[in-house]
Structure formats: structure tokens, C-alpha cells
Amino acid sequence: MPTTPSAHNPEGSPVPDAESAGTGGTALLGRKAAKIDRLAELMGPRDEGTHGAGIWRTAFSRLRRSPMAITGAIIVAGFVVVALFAPLLAPYAPTAQTWGDEVFPNQNIFVGPRAENWLGLDNLGRDQFSRMVIGARQTLLVGVVATLVGFGVGALLGGTAGAAATLGGRWGRTIDNAIMRVIDMMLALPTLLLAVTVAALIGPSLTTVMLAVGIAQVPIFARLLRGAMISQGNRDYVLAARALGVRKHKIALTHILPNSLGPVIVQSTLTLATAIIDAAALSYLGLGNPDPSFPEWGTMLADAQRFLSSAPQLAVYPALAIIVTALGFTLLGEAMREALDPKLRK
């Protein structure tokens, strides 16, 4: 064999160790130095640079190049900014019937967009634009809280079931079975029906809508997290952690859970979109906030239906706003799913 026997060559050092060139003159040494320099030059740039790029960071850099993600992010950012700074952006008070004497719904007299009221007036002579802006705030609140409720309860149930199923042995499987049967029952109910039931139980209010929509999302999150945890639990690195002697609860929390959260986080952006639509639907059905001083897109849509033939614009604005916002969250969620998908990672 030509190479040095049993030479242990770490992979990190591509340049051969300078062997003792005892016999050679300076020419030989110079030649050797030249060839090593040349090799280093040809291989040069590859070893520097990237320093500890985690999965989230690489996913983020992929997100930045996706047109879908950028569109979604712009819509979502716009929506959030409007919602946060709503009182500053709204030119008028949303409840003030300042122009009440200009609108007569029973005579089909409405006021469309004009210089002082950008989106016109609603049926009670309130500024539609101000109501839309303030409504964004309510909608964001409903979406976020509902998603948080769904995420929190769902992740707790699903996480417990998933951890019990993967690491709990016989008892764990029983716990998992019990939790999942409950989840299955929840899943069997149509989302909207479930929400209507909750709303009917505790009466119409904003809290009702948020709770109802949130609870409807629980089984989705629970199933998703449990499935991800079980598939991660079968991976070799979990076995490796067990072989290392890591405690089970620590394996579940530091190994399985962080690796299973990807799909759940993607789902939560998608859920935000459906939560907004569901909340609008519930408000439309009259289960939302009965207090007119807090305009909400769903309620506005519901109110506008009475004047659909004479003033369709009153329905179009909130409907468009709901659609565009939901689209923004969906685009962002889909782009995140793609960025985090291991199959698309090289």
C-alpha cells in the first residue's frame, strides 16, 4: 500500500502534514511550500463563513427569498400596525353619529366615499373608515387570543399525550389513549357548531367568541403536536439521549418538543386566519359583542346585510378586510411550512 500505514487523518485537515524532507535542498522545500499554498488557495474560501447556522436561521433566510412569504408578511405587518395604532389612525370616534342627519336607510339614502369620510358613512352616519380601523384591533385581539387558547390547551393535551405515548411505556399508552379519545370527540363536532354551543352556554360577548373559536382549534393543535412528537420520538437522537441517561421529562422537553413545534407554529398562523373568519361568522350570527361601541368586522358585516341592495359597499369593506387579512396569514403560514419542511431542505 502506498500511503502511510495507520496514519490517522482527521477529516478537518485537508492539507497533508509536512513530512520531514531531510534530504531536500531549499528548492525542494520551496516547491513543497508552493504546492501547499496553491492547494490552500484553491480550497480557500470554503471553510470560513457560515458559523453555526441553526435550522430556524436557515429557514428564515429561505423565507426572505420567498415572494409568498414577503406578500404575506407585508399584509400581516400592515394589519398589525393598523390594529396597534388604531386610535391614532382613526380620524373620528367610531361611535359618534356625527353625520346622522345625512343618512336615511329607510329612504335608501347613503353617503359614499368623500374627502372627509374616505369610506363613506354607515347606516347610522358614523365614519366607516374609523370603524374599520378600530375594528381591526378587535379582530386582531379575537384572532390572537383564540389562537393562543387553541394553541395553549391543544399543545398541553397533545404534548402530554405525545410524551406519554413515546416515553411512558404501558401506562403512557393508556394516558395517551384516554386523551386522544376525548380529542377525537371534539374533532367529531363541526367547528362552528362547537363554537355556537359554547357561545350559547355563556352568552354573547367578545370573550365568548374568543373562547369558542379557541376551543374549536384545540383538537387540531393537539393532534398535530402529538403526531409530530410521536414521529420525532422514534428518531435515533431520542434513543441516543435515552442511551446517554437523560431523564425522560428532559428528553420530552428539550429534544422531542422543540423538534415537533415547527408544524404547530405553522398551523398557528393558518389558525389565525381561520379564527378571524370564524370570529366574523360568530359575530355575524349575533353571538359576538353586542356593545356597538366596539366595532368588529364580523358584526359590521352582519349589520350591513340589511342594506345589501342599497349600500353594498358597507358589506364589501369588512368582507374584503377579512379576506385580505386571512390571506396574509395563510400565505405566511404556507411559506413557513415550506421553509421548515425537511424535504425541501438540501
Binding site: 441553526g54 435550522i55 435515533d236 437522537y237 441516543a240 439521549a241 446517554l244
Partner: peptide, 21 residues
Amino acid sequence: RRERRNLQMVFQDPLGSLNPR
């Protein structure tokens, strides 16, 4: 679990056996 510090394991799939995060 405590005994496992004396008995260790090297796995087949080098990537799969390391937590990616």
C-alpha cells in the same frame, strides 16, 4: 439511567442520532 454513564452507544445513522436543533 445512572448506570448508562458506564455503557454508551454509537448509532448507525450519524445525522439521525444527533438532535438537529
